[in-house]
Amino acid sequence: MIQLEVITKTYPMGKRELTVLHGVTFHIAPGEMVAIMGPSGSGKSTTLNVLGCLDQPTSGRYYLDGRDVSRLNRRELARVRAHKIGFIFQSYNLLPRMSALDNVTLGLKYAGIRDRSLAREALARVGLADRESHRPAEMSGGEQQRVAIARALAKKPPVILADEPTGNLDSRSSEEIMGILTTLHKEQGNTLVMITHEQEMASYCQRVIHLKDGKVLREERP
């Protein structure tokens, strides 16, 4: 499903250049649930941005679902994000002026799906059927993250990318979120890549990729 081939990423920093990724290579099979771990500055956020087609690698190849997406233009990248990828962020990133249902619908809208019943269904699957009309400010952090999961999953993308999804939550909510994620992952069979720095969260995954200084340090199966 995901193939990264010697990905490098270099940012211009004034006159010098800052290289964040020094040739990252790994493969993720369809339906796999993988955690990416590493200390801060190891390049795990940049890797996730590249995986999510929010950013393009300086060199190397990235094959998503069999297609080379490392040289696409901005328009094509937006299409890939809309149809292939569901994002879950550490800080939920819900639109504050919209209800839970509207937030989930928004995720469908850009994928060209106009069927609101899919949004309702997704909210029901994260256990928030009765919170459709609530705004983010009226919900707890755990509930907001569940709305975000529903938003990412509603369009049934082949790949879900989660950026420290439990980073802002207490341990009880964290467990709840991880429970939902693993359950839905099993049911829906999509590929899930998650960034985390907590070993406990990584243990939910089938495989852990450790990054350090912009390179893959090692892989393990917990």
Partner: peptide, 16 residues
């Protein structure tokens, strides 16, 4: 700005 970022991550095109 953040709203725009979220929309883009969800797949909004520049036209949207």
């Amino acid at each position: 700005t953040r709203e725009i970022g979220i929309r883009k991550a969800l797949g909004a095109r520049e036209r949207d």
